[in-house]
Amino acid sequence: MIKRFIVLLFLLALGLIFTQLLVEYIPDSELNLTAHYYAEHTAQDIGASNIVTAIIVTYRGLDTLGEVTVLFLTAAIVGLLLSKGNYKGKSLQRQLPQSGELLTTGSHLLVPLILLLGAYVFINGHLTPGGGFQGGAIIASAILLILLTDPLRKFSHTLIATIEATSGLLFLFIGVLGMIYAGGFLDNRLLPVGELGTLFSAGAIPFIYSLIGLKVGAEFSSMLVNLSETEGS
């Protein structure tokens, strides 16, 4: 009880700090220095319609690399954590209920479509409000669906690891190519910028974003698979 009270007290203080933030907050009426630059330069420099994508993949590409690495790291650690304990016999200790006919059939129908949607989303990341992370997450949702239908289904860890590693390495490789053939690490202009708004525009962005999509999809899948393998132990 006392603990709750103390926590409340501190949160009240924090709330007061937040209030101060709110009271003093004045929304911008003009784009600030950085945003203004992006608005003015993205189209001609990067060639991506989606400015957010340009920022994520190019201007702040290093962040994104870190972000992908966060997922990579998390997947690796989840793998380490969950493989660490030797499960007492791989056999199931309780009977899992059958997944219904509806789910099974539905998943057969939906999984390819979901995969397709995922690919669409990350390939068109520079044109539409989508991108590698969103696309990757969609792909992983297909895996989730499969796992829901058949929780005991085994996925090839090697395959996932290979996709994970290869897409990551290629991502880095394109980044390095940027250093050699363009202005710097992860500069997308090693390929022609192209015409604004078309699929093959924005230089290397579609490729990078596709790789990110694959990698994110692989990481999420790896986490899901690892978590699902704890089932029944």
Binding site: A35, R60, L81, T230
Partner: peptide
């Protein structure tokens, strides 16, 4: 302003990573 949108995407992904990790830890 596009910048916060770019940042929030990163923040979401990182938050997700940590949440997953915490869940795996919780399991362990």
């Amino acid at each position: 302003d596009p910048v916060p949108q770019a940042l929030v995407l990163t923040a979401i992904v990182i938050g997700l990573g940590i949440t997953t990790l915490m869940l795996a830890y919780a399991y362990k």
